[in-house]
Design a protein around this nucleic acid. Structure first.
Lengths: 131, 131
DNA sequence: TATAACTTTGTAATAATATAACGTAAGAAA
DNA sequence: TTTCTTACGTTATATTATTACAAAGTTATA
């Protein structure tokens, strides 16, 4: 089951809250700037919260953008199988939830038969609005 | 066709050379340190070369590691469809070349029928050696 | 040739992203 | 209580990447 928000620490709640309110991925220092009025003054406070939230699957890191996005899936403990759609024009990012895709990738084996416990996939293109 | 190495600038050749000699992904500042005896003294010289080499597909960036690896594929202009296997224990990284996987992902459409011109996939697990 | 346009280079400075280290405090467990 | 663990606050620093600008080299072509 998903970890409940009540189990989160104060700083973790603050950071998650601001990320959830953002439609788009947020950068760590943008988060920091936004939570300074709430008492989080230094980078480690933000990064610690981010680390934990990523770990429990409440947020995901968009690696190619060094930014963090809230997980909108109901079962958002799935921190180990993520896929995103990124518009290279407007930088709009959406999480892709395709059970077909996730099944395909979770079962993927390489030539030596190695299986993986985790993956991250980022698709790039131009979204409809930008076309 | 793949851009020939002869078309590369001096700095691009130097940087590509050192990455190709490394079995593992190299970080930008590690590259910088290693090429200082060859006259590349400052970060922009390295980053410019890296940018170009990524663009033409001679190297790829491992986003989750902020590191760069030489492309071993014969047709290494394919900068737009990359997949890697990363061992979370020894940090060994291998490029995955599975035509089945690349076909599947290149043809992937999301719910709105959007197609993508580029993707990057990173698999994580524990490699055989580390098991 | 020359001269403009463009690309690449070198360099200094700085921006942006992330972590180390250390001591304190608060809560859970024994 | 004592111990253990987790979280917190803080300072400093490490790491990754870009901006800005002038100089040098290349290419195109008048």
């Amino acid at each position: 089951m998903a970890q409940k928000q009540e189990n989160l620490s104060k700083n973790q709640k603050i950071v998650l809250d601001i990320i959830e309110k953002s439609a788009q991925p947020m950068k760590a220092y943008s988060i920091l700037f936004n939570v300074q009025k709430k008492g989080l003054k230094a980078p480690p406070q933000v990064y610690r919260a981010l680390d934990k939230l990523v770990e429990i699957g409440k947020i995901h890191k968009i690696e190619s953008r060094n930014a963090f996005i809230a997980c909108r899936n109901s079962a958002c403990t799935i921190a180990n199988a993520t896929a995103f759609s990124i518009c290279e024009s407007c930088e709009d990012v959406k999480e892709i939830s395709s059970s077909k895709l996730s099944k395909y990738l979770s079962n993927f084996q390489d030539k030596e038969g190695m299986k993986y416990n985790k993956y991250n996939l980022e698709f790039f293109g131009i979204c409809k609005k930008c076309k």
